[in-house]
Amino acid sequence: MARYGMVIDLGRCTGCQACSVACKTENNIPIVGPEESAKGRDINWIELATETEGEYPETREKFIPMFCMHCDDPPCVKVCPVHATYMGPEGIVGQNYDRCIGCRFCVAACPYTVKSFNWREYTEPGEMGRHANPDVSIRPVGVVEKCTFCVHREQGARETAALEGREMADGDYVPACVESCPAEAMIFGDLDDKGSKVAKAADSPHAFRMLEELGTEPKVHYLMERD
C-alpha cells in the first residue's frame, strides 16, 4: 500500500500561484465573491504564504505554498464526531461531504488552519454546468472541505494501470498542483517507495515539515537548500 506525500522545493518556487489556480479549477472550488472574500471566507485549498526577508532595498521574498498536510496523526480526524474527516488506506486525509454535520471542530483543531467551510451556498446546483470537473463533487452549504491530494486522480490512475495490466508506477498519479507547477518545485509520489523521487527528496537533510514539533507527522515536506 502506497503512502502518498509531497515535497515542495522552496528554492524553486517562484510564487506564481499556478498551483492554486489549477487546484481551484480541478476541484470545482467556488468563487465566493468580493463581499464574502472581504469577510475572510475565501475557499482556497492552496494558500501561498509569503515571508519577506531583509530590509528594503535588500529584500527577498520567500514563498510557501500551504495546504492540507495529510498528517499521519491528524488532529482533525481525531476530533470529528461522525467520521466525516477520515484517513484513507493510502494516508490521504479525506472529507466526506455527505456526512459532515458542519460542527467545525476539525477546523478549530487543525494547527495548520487549512480547512475551509461553506458559509453559504456558494455554488448553485447547475451553475458550473459543463465547466465543472465531473470527477469532483460540488460541496453543499454548511460542510467543511480541504485539499484531497486530488484523490479522484488516484482512482483514475489505478484503473488505467489495471486496464493495462501493470502495477502503478511512480508518476502515474499526480495532483493538479504538481502537474501545473512550471518551476517543477513540487514532487509527488509514494513516500514508502525508497526508489521514488519524492522519497529521495524527503530524505534530504535540507527537508523539513511544518510544525513538526507537534507530532502530527505531516506528509508534505519542504526543501530549503539555499540560504
Binding site: P81, V82, I101, C103, G142, V144
Partner: peptide, 16 residues
C-alpha cells in the same frame, strides 16, 4: 451552531 443541523442524527448513526 451546526452547518448541517439536518444531519444531527449522524452523530448517532456514525458517532465516534
Amino acid at each position: 451552531d451546526m452547518g448541517r443541523p439536518d444531519r444531527l442524527l449522524n452523530v448517532i448513526w456514525y458517532g465516534r
